[in-house]
Computed example of a mutant assay.
Amino acid sequence: MTFPPKTATIPDSQPLVPATVAAQIEALALTPGRPLLIADADEVLFYFMRGLERFLDSRDLYFDWRSYALYGNIRHRRDGSAMAAEDLHPLLQSFFAEATELLEPVEGAAAALAHLAGKTQIVVLSNVPLTSKDARARALVRHGMDFPLIANSGPKGPAVAALLERVQARAAFIDDIPHNHTSVAKLAPVMHRLHFIADPRLAALLGRAPDCHHRVDTWDEIRDHVAALLIED
């Protein structure tokens, strides 16, 4: 395993963080020099696809499981046709509004984060709509993951770079989506990047993210990997 340095800096010139995201980051109480773990929520802390399938079924829709993408795989039960692209965003907004607080937690996530929290600071960086941030925060508390939450918008590199700039410390990032790893690799290259997809059906559709450092399959593995990376000398 290759470790980043104990302290880390990021390039001086970074794309601007969206104003709503920057305000959330500014409000965080972060400790400079303390190791930082940044974790996604959907398919990392919560089972997104399980909840989405229930939501789709209630609307006479289903997920086709042909690929990792949502577009093209959400189909009408009546005739098997794919949902129109222009209808996908409103559907997902309705899903987050109705189901965010109801998603099942991923096994082992709360216990692993509790283990790591003693010697790291943990931030949940989720692309949940800002309007559903409070629902996600309540779900985190309910399931034993009461950590600061940022409702991000767009690729995660800008927000991760801003967080890393705040702490200037050894850090790790966990996400299921490859383009988020790419974004972080470009803007915060010293960040150690773990690729994790909780739902095994979804994980089987996608290989290792090209810009991650390591692909992991369980939270027990994440706990041990992050502990070795951020805590143990």
Rank of each mutant, 00 (worst) to 15 (best):
P158I: 05
D134L: 13
G108C: 12
G108Y: 09
T120D: 04
G154M: 11
G154D: 13
R142A: 15
A112P: 11
D175I: 06
A171M: 10
E165W: 04
K119F: 02
A172S: 13
A114W: 00
M145V: 00
G108S: 12
H143D: 13
V123L: 08
R166Q: 14
M145T: 02
P129A: 07
E104D: 15
A171K: 07
A110L: 08
I150R: 01
L163V: 03
A135L: 14
L116W: 00
V128E: 05
R142T: 10
A162Q: 07
L149A: 04
P105Q: 08
E98R: 13
F173N: 04
I150M: 03
E165G: 15
L163A: 06
D134H: 12
K133Q: 15
A110E: 05
A111W: 00
V123P: 01
R142W: 01
I177Y: 14
P105Y: 06
R136E: 12
L103C: 07
F173P: 03
A117G: 08
A161H: 05
Q168V: 09
A99T: 11
T100D: 03
A99Q: 15
L103Y: 04
R136Q: 14
Q121L: 05
S153W: 00
V128K: 06
N127P: 02
L130T: 13
A114Q: 13
Q121W: 00
A135Q: 13
A139T: 01
E101A: 15
S132Q: 04
T120Q: 06
T120G: 05
